[in-house]
Structure formats: C-alpha cells, structure tokens
Amino acid sequence: MARQGQPKPFEPRGSRKPAKATAKSSISPKASGSAKASLGQQAIPEMVANRMARRIAIATGIPSALGMGVFVASYFLVSRGVVDIAPALTLVTSGAFFLLGLVGLSYGVLSSSWEDVPGSLLGLEQIRVNLGRLRQSVRAMRQGSPAE
C-alpha cells in the first residue's frame, strides 16, 4: 500500500491530510534549496513507470502492428489476385487500428495502479480512480492553488 502521508505526484496539493511533522527535517541544509524547488515536480515512481510502460507497449503495440499488418495483408491479397480490396477500405481499416493504438496510450497510463500492489491484469478498476485524481489535479491547477 502507499504511504498515507505522502501525496502521489498527480494529486493536487492539500487533497490529503499532512502526515505528522517531526522535529527534525529529513532534508539536509545543502539539499534544502534544490529539494524545495523540486517538490512541485515529483517524479513518477520507477515501479509505476515500468507498469505504465508495459501497459502502453501492449495497448499501443498490438493495434499499431495490426494497422501495419493490414497494409501488408491487403498487398499480398491484391497482388496474388485472391481478393480485390478497395484502397479506401485498406486505409480506413488501418486508420482504425492506429486510432485504437492512440486510445491504448491513454488506457495504458490511466489503468496503471499507483499503489505498491500492481492491481489486476486489465486494470479497469484503476481507470475511475486515476481519472478522478486527474480531474482534481486539473481543477487545482485552474484555481491556481498556492504552492507550499
């Protein structure tokens, strides 16, 4: 599970209750200037980034390969005289697969779990959670929430 006190990089500031403050800061005096500057720009954890990359590769790679395969298959079918396929049909079918790959890009990002536990195979339960977090983040940016 995610640590309770630390917000996720895409969550707006102030959406969680802060963790109990400790007497000593964990940031050294030398690093405090650069750490303060980078607080607003938190990186995606490596584990989550790998999970996203895997989902994106599958969700965009398969439809993109099928989109290119449509051209190859229609070329062989037409050149061998098996079937007469209209070029517009080849173009529309290939375009549909590439569009599906574009949708797969968003799906790969939104279906990835930001928790320590990877989640389910398809990640459908994470889409609603991540869309809600995305909406909150966009609302907070539009309202110009003050930086802490």
Rank of each mutant, 00 (worst) to 15 (best):
A37K: 13
M141E: 15
I62D: 01
A73W: 01
A49T: 09
A53P: 02
R142H: 11
G132P: 04
A49D: 10
R139Y: 07
S38W: 14
Q41D: 14
R3W: 05
K36M: 07
Q42K: 10
G67K: 00
R128I: 11
V138F: 05
F76M: 04
A147G: 10
S34P: 09
L89Y: 12
T90G: 00
I44Y: 00
S15E: 09
G95C: 01
G108V: 02
S137L: 06
V83T: 07
Y75I: 09
P9K: 01
F71I: 07
S106M: 14
S120M: 03
A43G: 06
P7V: 04
G95Q: 02
L124N: 13
G33H: 12
S79A: 10
G14Q: 08
P45G: 05
A88F: 07
A19R: 05
Q6V: 15
A35R: 14
L105A: 06
P87Y: 03
A147I: 15
L91S: 14
G5M: 06
A21D: 13
V117F: 11
V109T: 06
I127A: 04
A59W: 01
S74C: 11
V48D: 02
I62N: 02
I127N: 03
P118F: 00
S94V: 03
R13A: 15
Q42A: 13
V82R: 07
S26I: 13
T60M: 11
Q126R: 05
S111L: 02
S94M: 04
T22D: 08
M47C: 11
V117P: 06
E11D: 02
G69K: 02
L99H: 05
R133S: 07
N50I: 09
V103T: 08
M141W: 15
D84C: 13
S113I: 03
V83F: 06
L110I: 03
A140Y: 03
I58D: 04
R80E: 10
F98Y: 08
A23L: 11
A59T: 02
Q136I: 03
G81S: 00
I127R: 01
A65P: 06
Q136Y: 07
V83K: 09
K17N: 12
R128Q: 11
I44E: 05
P7L: 05
F71L: 12
V138H: 07
R133E: 09
V48G: 04
D116I: 05
I85M: 00
R16N: 14
V109G: 05
